[in-house]
């Protein structure tokens, strides 16, 4: 790029098909929002299936939900909200042109995202131990939790069925649980990859107050994934707590 082009366009990151940096930034943000709408529709289908089966099997959904670990679920909600905050701060520091805190915030966001995935892995492993992976997804270990008998001492690994619930209906909950949290976790993994890319480029000093669309746009994606979890947490973990222990 010769000096004249630089003078005309004002910034080396400006693509030739945009009038100015402002228009380029707006176009990027707009495109990301359109993508997020398709994502909302994608998760919307699963939320629809959830609502449908929950209205069909309310007791089974409450029983199955009570078996989830509320402490880990709440902890992960906090972790994800914290990561959204650090992501927002990363955008802020990019906008005011402070590179060091920008990198620190991005690294924090990545670490918190990985923490979330780690906790999720612990939860999945607990479900594996209790034979709660639906269908025959795990070869040789099909869905078959032990059911808590009346009058027996409470065993946290056994499924406590509320009146009117059956094991087959509980399996339906776990299909939805793994589909929804699994797709959410996949989005987190993709987000972690994108953050790694951001950290590398921000270390190279690629972003400045004039040009920071990648930080802004990946931030939008990260917050969207946070919002999905904000809905998943009460819908999956909290729906039957008032109906007694699990």
């Amino acid at each position: 790029m010769d000096a004249t082009t630089e003078q005309i366009h004002g910034h080396h990151s400006l693509q030739h098909h945009f009038e100015n940096m402002e228009q380029q930034r707006e176009a990027g943000t707009l495109g990301m929002w359109v993508f997020l709408v398709t994502e909302i529709m994608f998760f919307g289908g699963m939320f629809l299936a959830y609502t449908l089966y929950r209205s069909k099997f309310p007791e089974a959904f409450a029983s199955a939900s009570n078996h989830l670990d509320i402490t880990l679920g709440a902890l992960n909600t906090g972790v994800l909200i914290f990561s959204s905050f650090t992501m927002a701060m990363a955008v802020y520091f990019t906008q005011i042109g402070k590179q060091r805190p920008q990198v620190i915030c991005l690294v924090l966001t990545l670490l918190l995202g990985l923490t979330f995935l780690g906790v999720k892995a612990v939860e999945y492993h607990d479900k594996y131990n209790d034979h709660l992976i639906p269908g025959r997804l795990i070869p040789g270990r099909q869905f078959g939790p032990e059911v808590q008998e009346e009058g027996q001492p409470l065993d946290p690994h056994k499924l406590h069925l509320l009146t009117g619930a059956t094991v087959r209906q509980v399996e339906m909950f776990y299909w939805l649980y793994f589909a929804m949290t699994g797709m959410h976790a996949l989005h987190m993994i993709i987000g972690a990859g994108l953050l790694t890319f951001l950290i590398i480029f921000s270390l190279k000093g690629r972003f400045d107050p004039e040009y920071h669309s990648p930080v802004e746009v990946i931030g939008l994606y990260w917050h969207f994934v946070d919002i999905i979890w904000i809905f998943l947490f009460p819908l999956l973990y909290l729906l039957g707590r008032h109906m007694g222990h699990g």
Partner: peptide
């Protein structure tokens, strides 16, 4: 949940 999501969309996003 809707309130929390609204705050995220309006301010973080």
């Amino acid at each position: 949940a809707v309130t929390k999501a609204t705050f995220v969309v309006l301010y973080f996003m």
